[in-house]
């Protein structure tokens, strides 16, 4: 399976930014500082359970329900 990581990243950014592009950019930067470089993941990226688990934890920290 592929694409799950990209989907989770997009959901986290969208839910925190609520349509504000400046906040979206800041959330993207926050993810990089937390160790997730969103640009590295596409719809074709294989579903890596370790990265998915990390994103689930980050979403919880950021108050985002996936």
């Amino acid at each position: 399976m592929a694409g799950k990581i990209r989907q989770l990243v997009d959901v986290i950014i969208a839910k925190r930014a609520k349509g504000n592009p400046v906040v979206a950019q800041a959330v993207k930067a926050k993810l990089v500082l937390k160790g997730i470089r969103s640009d590295n993941y596409s719809e074709g990226t294989p579903d890596d359970p370790a990265v998915i688990k990390k994103l689930e934890i980050l979403a919880k920290e950021l108050g985002v329900t996936l």
């Binding site: 925190r16 930014a17 504000n20 906040v23 800041a26 959330v27 926050k30 500082l33 937390k34 920290e61 950021l62 108050g63």
Partner: peptide
């Protein structure tokens, strides 16, 4: 800063 960024979008 990590915790602040978790809890708010305020700069």
């Amino acid at each position: 800063m990590d915790k602040i960024g978790d809890l708010t979008n305020v700069w």
